[in-house]
């Protein structure tokens, strides 16, 4: 088996491109946000396509992708949003494993659908693991490439990979498993059981209204603009743990959808939580996009999640590794 590593120059960084994996777990009790990819499904598919374990580090590219120059041969897959990727000037397919030759140039163009695109390379992006993860948390300058987004002139290193595994090239995600991204999405939510935190009308308002993602939205959370959700007046809410997908409601009644870089604890009452299987859809929303919510049970949420990964495992089996070597 021929082990290779790739070196890649960042010619242009794109709008916001960071190294991410599946998140930094185990430190939320010290206030450390989980971070990691916003669209877990797209990142996992990208990794499996190129022959990586699910937790290998990928690049998350936002709205406008980077320009990358490959100093070495590499194997890659682009998944998630369609930001018009090209290799040496020719369009390349998404959700498919490709070879790139030494001297190849990967560029992105306009946003077609979705908001966040993932670039997986065989061997993963090799940055030091901090607290067990390669994810970048920019506000605390933790992980990834010096805790910051990519800059022009950066040199990226790929981890070692099997250069002979040419059989992977051309492998793609079956069409029936392809996610559909839209500028208006429906997200399923589990309602918070503490109905006493809100006025009676809040839940029907949430379920029968359209909310728009505000410009001041980021990896921490999306501010949603729409009919306000009235909180129960006198209730004083003591800060408690939050979860990704929480819809929390500040005093003005405009909900905030908490995403990958969310604070570990929050003092705003939660009205509902977006279910895990729909978080990848939420990750593909950008400012100006709209969202509607439908209610769902926890059992149903977990069943659809398991079904989705069961189907994915059948199509693209996970690569098993010793966790320690990730």
């Amino acid at each position: 088996m021929k082990r290779k590593r790739a070196q890649i120059d960042v010619v242009k960084p794109g709008w916001l491109t960071t190294v991410q994996d599946l998140g930094r777990h185990g430190y939320q009790r010290y206030g450390m946000p989980v971070s990691g990819v916003m669209d877990r499904f797209a990142a996992i598919v990208g990794n499996r396509l190129v022959g990586n374990p699910d937790g290998a580090a990928v690049l998350e590219c936002t709205l406008k992708g980077p320009e990358l120059f490959f100093r070495d041969d590499a194997r890659l897959a682009v998944t998630g949003a369609d930001l018009s990727p090209t290799l040496d000037g020719s369009d390349i397919p998404l959700w498919e494993c490709l070879n790139v030759r030494r001297g190849g140039r990967l560029r992105f163009g306009t946003r077609r659908v979705g908001f966040r695109c993932y670039l997986a390379i065989a061997g993963g992006f090799d940055v030091p693991a901090v607290l067990g993860s390669r994810s970048t948390h920019c506000p605390s300058q933790t992980g990834g490439l010096d805790g910051r987004p990519l800059r022009a002139g950066d040199l990226l290193f790929g981890g070692p990979f099997d250069g002979d595994a040419g059989r992977l090239v051309g492998r793609r995600l079956p069409d029936r498993l392809l996610p559909r991204y839209d500028r208006s999405m429906i997200l399923r939510i589990v309602l918070d059981p503490r109905r006493e935190l809100f006025q009676d009308t809040a839940i029907s308002t949430l379920l029968y209204s359209v909310y728009t993602v505000a410009p001041q939205s980021d990896r921490m959370g999306y501010r949603l603009i729409g009919p306000p959700l009235p909180r129960a007046g006198a209730h004083y809410f003591i800060s408690e743990g939050t979860v990704t997908g929480t819809l929390q409601v500040p005093a003005d009644g405009q909900p905030i959808l908490l995403m990958a870089d969310r604070q570990t604890t929050g003092g705003y009452p939660p009205i509902a939580v977006v279910i895990s299987v729909d978080l990848p859809s939420a990750a593909q929303l950008g400012p100006g996009d709209t969202v509607r919510f439908v209610s769902c049970s926890i059992v149903e949420a977990q069943t659809v999640l398991r079904t989705r990964y069961h189907l994915l495992d059948a199509a693209l089996p996970p690569i098993m590794v010793n966790r320690r070597s990730l």
């Binding site: 589990v190 918070d192 503490r194 939660p270 939580v273 895990s276 926890i298 977990q302 999640l305």
Partner: peptide, 8 residues
């Protein structure tokens, strides 16, 4: 016990 969505 207060479930927060399907994962907490």
């Amino acid at each position: 016990l207060i479930p927060l969505g399907d994962s907490a």
